[in-house]
Design a protein around this nucleic acid. Sequence first.
DNA 1: ATAATTTTTTAGATTTACCTAAATACATAT
DNA 2: ATATGTATTTAGGTAAATCTAAAAAATTAT
Lengths: 223, 223
Amino acid sequence: MKYSSSKENYIKAIFHLQQDDEVVSTNALAKALSTRPASVTDMLKKLKSQKLLQYQPYKGVKLTAEGKKIALQIIRKHRLWEYFLVEKLGFGWEEVHEIAEELEHISSKKLIDRLDLFLGNPKTDPHGDPIPDSQGRMPLIRQICLLELPENIQADVISVSNQSTAMLELLRHNHIAIGTRLEVSRRFAFDHSLEIRMPSQPFFTISEQLAANIYVAFEAESK
Amino acid sequence: MKYSSSKENYIKAIFHLQQDDEVVSTNALAKALSTRPASVTDMLKKLKSQKLLQYQPYKGVKLTAEGKKIALQIIRKHRLWEYFLVEKLGFGWEEVHEIAEELEHISSKKLIDRLDLFLGNPKTDPHGDPIPDSQGRMPLIRQICLLELPENIQADVISVSNQSTAMLELLRHNHIAIGTRLEVSRRFAFDHSLEIRMPSQPFFTISEQLAANIYVAFEAESK
DNA sequence: ATAATTTTTTAGATTTACCTAAATACATAT
DNA sequence: ATATGTATTTAGGTAAATCTAAAAAATTAT
């Protein structure tokens, strides 16, 4: 079944807002979609009649299994297009979101599966967010600040929150870049500095300050 | 300025229908867009107020310079996406039109210029139609049946109208494929067969029947 | 527990892009 | 030149997705 871009945006927004299985409020949705609460109420009624969500007046909203499935398809498209824009067309990761907001509504499933293949089945988008597979399964990837990474667990650098040249210079000196695989082998209580281990390289330490600006992803053990 | 997908489709349809500078009729547009004449009249009034076309009731319609510019941008997007789908994602040339009808409405100009670069600035789409450049200039490419190609003029094979395996087998035997550069060196009156010359290969002849199914493109001299 | 506040819904409009049916303009045939 | 037929427009209506203003329900504070 095909849904309008507007409906897809509602579904996606609800998906992102419903942490665990909390219900989402009309106001929260209105804010997320930059629209008015009255418009949200209207749309929720339509989506409910299509069985994409559970909704009782005044009681908030929650996606059904079918609704979640659709959300994951949209997120898959969004993230694959972002990956394409950055890796193939050379866009900066900060400028791709807006374009992907449009591309995610292109309907062909075959297109997106071939795009996935063409890109080499990437696991995360340029912001480090996991890409659902063609069945809508999203690899459970934990994304945290390097400061919080448990010791002796391999992780991949997915983003750096500070783009200053001073910081980038230091990163380059330490051979740390987006995609670098590393683990924390020790923490020093005195100054909270971290000892970092990287494949085929001597150990080295980095300051708490630097680590605070590095974000990493690692595969969680289970569901 | 941004226009709705619907408006873009009208502009594109008018562009394709207006050969030379003939005006286009309401009925012809309605047929091309699978809509009703009354709907066309409505839309023409809107597009006229936006100065994209010249329109007098009962007198037909014609794009303004601005309207043509927009049409060429849309056609550029359509054809570049088709090229991408075939060359990068491995789609067959017959299945890409529908997907490109959606992709052509993605608005980012930067996206399309980068896509163009990524694809190596192709001059024609998979159907052999020329791709307008980023300023909307469309290379004047004459596209004709091999039967009508003047002698001793180099041309590129752009499509074959018969997809039978028997025909494809014969093409392969003669080393003719989409993109092959060739010229007609002689024509034989008796059976209308053609002598073909290809760079670094001996001459050979093909039947009228085969030539009738091969289409070629060549650069026109001027304008 | 009642009042005040906030959230949410309802009611009624608006815009875009369609539609059908009827009226009007244009073209053609006798 | 008049009638007939075709093309086009007008008039009035619908569905989707939005809006504002007002009413109703839920929550919070005293």
